[in-house]
Nucleic acid binder design. Structure first.
Lengths: 128, 128
DNA sequence: CTCTTTCTACGAAATATTTCGTAATAAAAT
DNA sequence: ATTTTATTACGAAATATTTCGTAGAAAGAG
């Protein structure tokens, strides 16, 4: 578990698609990706080859073509990016980020309730 | 209130310093910046000139030299970056981000209490 | 006044990221 | 069997970001 590189913005878009639909061929990924931005097939292919080299994806040969899957878990990646983000933008203060996020984003009652439950759990476990 | 460009990583580091200590000369900023990464004086200067052009900074002539301040507020910038981040990494779900942030980051009791209060306020105002 | 130091401005090199064209190959269609 | 289509690999152009060197001007020291 060496230090995986931080995925770039474009790489993250591809990971999002794979997390949702994997395993996928390049074509399948490109079909989804090219709806948000007009991306050529070989552009997507190139990204996925680069990501394979970086260890972000894995693949399996299927005759002429390849079938890709993510090699990094969604939650792990989110956590890694979040840590970076909190440090860069909020000087490491997760609670400041949380308050800013809650302040301007409307969340459903259900979600707010879940957050409350989480707070309770943290409080209870908080006898370090 | 046109669309300010998203500050790059290096630009954000400079903004952080200014938000803390502004107004500053290039030298003052570089003194702080060069402690985290060995940055040459002209590198910092160049960044600050670019940031002036982009509208991220403003400055005032002081004889031979210039005195810079931020032209964007910290909270606004954080909010803008946060929105982007939530969309890119958490598919727009602020509450997922919040839970991930609370889950792995230890926050003080005080901070957790503040978040609870914030939740209450949201609940009360929540008659969309 | 002359030399040294401290600025700014500018250009451009170095690196990272994104995008695509072309060639080679294999499969599928006719 | 020839042509069309689909796929990978590769290289490199286009763009964005980071870094620094050099020149010139202005201030300060001697």
């Amino acid at each position: 578990m060496a230090d995986l590189p931080k995925p770039t913005e474009a790489e993250l878009e591809i990971l999002q698609i794979l997390w949702e639909k994997e395993p996928c061929t390049v074509r399948q990924v490109n079909e989804v990706l090219s709806q948000k931005k007009k991306t050529g097939y070989t552009t997507t292919l190139k990204f996925m080859q680069i990501m394979l080299e970086k260890g972000l994806l894995k693949r399996e040969e299927a005759g002429r073509s390849h079938i890709y899957s993510s090699a990094v878990a969604e939650a792990d990646t989110q956590q890694r990016l979040l840590d970076r983000f909190v440090n860069q933008v909020f000087k490491g203060s997760a609670s400041k980020l949380v308050m800013q996020a809650l302040g301007n984003k409307k969340s459903s009652k259900d979600e707010l309730e879940q957050i409350r439950k989480l707070l309770d759990e943290i409080d209870n476990a908080d006898n370090e």
